[in-house]
């Protein structure tokens, strides 16, 4: 119960802290509008289904990805800069709970950004957003949020141990948009790149959202995407737990938590 309360409080605190930063405000309120406008210029004359899959879901998902993964991971570096990382690390509530709380906070902001994208496209560009299977979409979205959160947790651990991880994070933000096919099918990519795409959870996450919003629902495709997401989530959970234990020990061996 106390852990749940800490998780809830961490989430609220970090929602406040995140949105107080101008860069985060830009990521949540402005960036999705730019992305969706660019996507409209690319796909403007295509079918409603393509617009839904590559403009609405594509640009919305980019906002979600940036918020959950990019922000959650670099939040650890921010704590280091504030000088609070060491306090969080040695408080009785496990550091993992704090990390999960941060990820949940950014997930909520990411969802708000996703909804904002939908509203912007609907009002400004009059795009018809029809969810043929709303319940299925809701369930798929929950699964997608879970897998992105697990992936964010895994990346955040890297930040806890190394200050250099931020350089990697900046380096991978945009390539992930491309490699995971947020705005176009990954079949456009060279085969060797597709191999990389399939081991990254965002690829399957966006695919699942496209599957459940298709007018002609392919049960087989939904099952394949769900299975892939679940398997990858399990793999990243196992790696995450292992890395967390390693980080917990290594942080106390290297003693660099407070160095920024």
């Amino acid at each position: 119960m106390k852990i749940a309360k800490s998780l809830h409080h961490t989430m609220l605190v970090h929602m406040k802290l995140s949105i107080a930063r101008p860069m985060f405000k830009y990521i949540i309120w402005i960036m999705p509008l730019f992305f969706s406008t660019i996507a409209i210029f690319v796909y403007g004359t295509d079918s409603e289904q393509t617009l839904l899959h590559y403009v609405v879901l594509g640009s919305g998902f980019m906002a979600l990805w940036s918020s959950i993964v990019f922000s959650s991971a670099s939040d650890v570096n921010r704590e280091r800069y504030y000088g609070t990382l060491e306090i969080l690390f040695i408080s009785p509530v496990p550091f993992a709970i704090t990390l999960i709380g941060k990820i949940l906070a950014n997930t909520v902001w990411g969802l708000i950004s996703l909804i904002l994208t939908f509203i912007y496209l609907k009002i400004v560009f009059q795009i018809e957003i029809v969810l043929y299977h709303p319940w299925l979409f809701g369930l798929a979205l929950l699964l997608v949020l879970l897998t992105l959160s697990v992936f964010a947790f895994f990346l955040a651990l890297g930040f806890t141990l190394s200050r250099q991880a931020e350089a990697l994070m900046n380096f991978i933000e945009y390539p992930i948009y491309l490699v995971c096919g947020f705005m176009f099918p990954i079949t456009y990519l060279p085969e060797w790149v597709q191999g990389v795409s399939y081991i990254l959870p965002p690829t399957w996450a966006i695919q699942l959202l496209r599957d459940v919003t298709a007018q002609n629902l392919s049960f087989q495709s939904v099952v394949l995407s769900c299975t892939a997401i679940l398997l990858l989530t399990i793999v990243y959970v196992i790696i995450g737990i292992y890395c967390y234990r390693l980080m917990d020990k290594k942080a106390r061996i290297s003693g660099k938590l407070g160095v920024y």
Binding site: K2, H9, L17, Y82, G83, T84, I87
Partner: peptide, 19 residues
Amino acid sequence: RNLYWRLTAYDNLSYFADL
């Protein structure tokens, strides 16, 4: 350092109390 400057004094203590 070691505090959240963008939060109030009360909010800081409230958060750390939960931790």
